[in-house]
């Protein structure tokens, strides 16, 4: 909703001032300071970037991180869309139950959820003992510290970020639209493909963007569930900063990650022209 007729522009700007000041002091300035560390050591240098792009290992980690984020985004979309649809359709008590199932994990710390996956997936964990007692496997499976485990746990953690925006865009579709499509000759499948899906795209885009970007910088879950063998870019940054104390190099990796994230956000917006799809009928 617009603020037309409410606050004047200058009053609104004045009210935004404290937060803007806080953001600049506590976020923008430290960020700029940290990023500039990568360029001045002590004089201006591109040495750290040169090293980053010349080392195959780092580029591999970067590639792996992007791949992981893409896979996690795809899986959350495929699993999340039906849940979002269900949430948008349900009314009354069941709507609350499904919403609680989606939201409660969101309020649980990531650390707790990651440890929960360790308990489930470890060698003598819940899953392996169940499979063994059912006689499905003789040897415990290696589940933890695998790429699959990372994708699984990240998908779980990031699911609400996919479901909620999709759900809200589905809810915004007036109910007479699918009805009109039905009445004009569309089967249930075609109502979905030609009306519901296109109209929910803004939510899908928002969800994908959010999940992808958060996944790119994910740290705790991959570090815990993926073990030392699955190295994500954020793990690399932490290693450089806190173990090797190479702050300029950590800063340069961070800069690359930030630029990558911003670039993807911009491309997403341009490519899919989300604004055109928004509902203003």
């Amino acid at each position: 909703m617009s603020m037309r007729g409410g606050l004047s522009r200058s009053t609104a700007a004045l009210m935004a001032l404290p937060l803007a000041a806080l953001m600049i002091a506590a976020f923008v300035w430290p960020l700029v300071a940290f990023l500039s560390v990568s360029l001045f050591d002590p004089g201006f240098t591109l040495e750290h970037y040169a090293r980053l792009f010349a080392t195959e290992l780092y580029l591999e980690v970067l590639g792996e991180t992007i791949l992981t984020a893409l896979i996690v985004t795809a899986v959350t979309l495929l699993l999340g869309y039906p849940i979002a649809w269900m949430m948008a359709k349900l009314r009354g008590r069941w709507a609350w139950i499904v919403a609680a199932c989606v939201l409660i994990p969101l309020w649980t710390p990531v650390l707790v959820r990651s440890y929960a996956w360790i308990i489930i997936l470890q060698r003598r964990g819940v899953l392996n003992t169940t499979l063994a007692s059912l006689g499905i496997v003789d040897q415990p499976l290696t589940l933890l510290y695998t790429f699959g485990a990372v994708v699984l746990a990240m998908t779980h953690v990031l699911m609400p970020f996919m479901i909620l925006p999709i759900q809200s865009s589905l809810r915004a579709i007036p109910e007479e639209l699918p009805r009109a499509a039905r009445g004009l000759g569309a089967s249930h499948l075609r109502v979905f493909t030609s009306v519901i899906l296109p109209l929910s795209l803004p939510g899908v885009m928002a969800g994908c963007l959010m999940v992808f970007i958060i996944a790119l910088g994910f740290y705790i879950t991959p570090a815990l569930v993926g073990g030392p063998r699955t190295l994500m870019i954020s793990t690399l940054i932490t290693q450089q900063a806190f173990e090797l104390l190479n702050w300029p190099f950590a800063a340069s990796i961070s800069t690359v990650l930030l630029v990558l994230t911003l670039g993807i956000a911009i491309v997403f917006r341009r490519l899919l022209n989300v604004d055109r799809l928004s509902l203003h009928a």
Binding site: E176, R179, A180, L184, H280, A281
Partner: peptide, 18 residues
């Protein structure tokens, strides 16, 4: 409804906004 030979006009037009 999609197999009935009926053309329908809705109260709030129900045009597809996209």
């Amino acid at each position: 409804p999609n197999k009935r030979d009926i053309g329908m006009v809705f109260q709030r037009y129900a045009l597809f906004p996209h």
